[in-house]
């Protein structure tokens, strides 16, 4: 089952959403989340999410809002990528 998750990433031709992947693999979404978390711990998948907190830390004085949290960044969806398939 764990291998199926990695295979789904490898064989994906276009971005998938988590709900569709759970349906495709015929597993519950919490179980899929667990398997993804496992592969993230193993370093085979990578999770990323652009959030306001990253702006607060990095934007600093150059940001439109000064030192506070940058207001111009919504919480972007969490995305999970296969590691080691990029050049």
């Amino acid at each position: 089952m764990l291998q199926q998750v990695l295979r789904a990433f490898e064989e994906a031709r276009e971005p998938l959403n988590l709900v569709d992947l759970a349906r495709q693999l015929d597993v519950d979404q919490p179980a899929l989340e667990g398997m993804i978390a496992y592969w993230v711990r193993k370093g085979r998948l990578k999770e990323s999410q652009a959030t306001a907190s990253s702006c607060r830390a990095e934007c600093g004085p150059t940001c439109a809002s000064g030192a506070g949290p940058c207001p111009f960044i919504g919480k972007m969806p969490r995305i999970i990528t296969l590691v080691g398939t990029e050049e």
Binding site: S48, A50, S54, C55, C70, I73, G74, M76
Partner: peptide
């Protein structure tokens, strides 16, 4: 496109949001 959508508000955080890309 994720950083690019952020850019609709302000391009500065959008530039920093490119850090979510791997390479």
């Amino acid at each position: 496109f994720l950083p690019m959508i952020v850019g609709f508000g302000c391009n500065v955080p959008a530039i920093y949001a490119t850090r979510t890309l791997e390479t």
